[in-house]
Write a protein that binds this DNA or RNA. Structure first.
Lengths: 144, 144
DNA sequence: GCGATATCCAGAAAAATTCCTGTTCTTTTC
DNA sequence: GAAAAGAACAGGAATTTTTCTGGATATCGC
């Protein structure tokens, strides 16, 4: 992980489909050298994976929110996990230290769908005793 | 945006570097047809951009946290924005409805760096009157 | 010093992409 | 309902990229 690797990662963060030959021109290395570096970054798990960032608004998910969840007892975690992993509108779920046990980041079409998610999905899980929802007005920064 | 486009997006989410020829085999279309569809998805901004998901732990950022920030008056927003955009450890910054004005998602090496970020960077911004930091213990889901 | 490992480059073969053309299918319009 | 216009697709050629070799150079540990 030298400074050239960092340059390569920076370029790939901006454009994950940038070709090795284009990268090679920017970092002043040969094409095989760049390909080999990328391969090793993947192998060493520094690069988790290549992906595509979609525009949520274009996909009808105009509403972004954070939902904090208090789970009564650890015995309910498995059921909770299953529900969360299946819910497409839940982008992230973090186990937290503090007053609440879980923090969810969710993307939905609007408040109707948010209401359904909270009432019909999250609060239906046994052990969920309290939630606290915070609505996002706008996002000034959003990387990975 | 038909079901084939959705298939293509799903494939690209799992592997952003999947070649058009590989995709064409999976969705039973010709290579030019797939390329054209991807081009249009980019043009219509459904695809924001291609990128790479890095492994934060491998990069020495073992600590993930959310910081909620209360900003006294809107006149301090510009200064706040500048500081946030420059801070590499701040992954996300959302303007919120509710008790706090901003929600930050930050990734750092540890509590020392977190302390510096809060005390020396965020709280130094004029107008920041209150913060509330929540530490992530583990993440069971994290997409985009 | 000396071997072992790693990194690099150059060139060739394989693969993928792009571009072009012709065809089919859908949609529009009369 | 039929003809025209437009969009989407498949096939093939030219270009670019990737991958795979072989060999040179540098680095590290002994």
């Amino acid at each position: 992980m030298d400074h050239i690797d960092q340059e390569i990662l920076q370029l790939l963060k901006n454009n994950g489909r940038m070709t090795s030959s284009e990268i090679s021109r920017q970092v002043h290395l040969s094409v095989p050298a760049v390909s080999e570096r990328i391969r090793k970054l993947e192998e060493s798990a520094v690069i988790d994976r290549f992906t595509v960032k979609l525009n949520r608004e274009q996909l009808g998910q105009q509403l972004l929110a954070f939902i904090m969840v208090q789970l009564e007892k650890p015995e309910h975690v498995e059921e909770f996990r299953k529900v969360i992993l299946q819910a497409d509108s839940v982008l992230e779920c973090h186990h937290m230290a503090g007053a609440y046990d879980y923090m969810l980041k969710v993307a939905l079409s609007g408040t109707k769908e948010l209401e359904r998610l909270i009432s019909d999905t999250i609060k239906q899980v046994p052990g969920v005793v309290k939630t606290n929802t915070m609505i996002v007005l706008s996002s000034m920064k959003e990387e990975m």
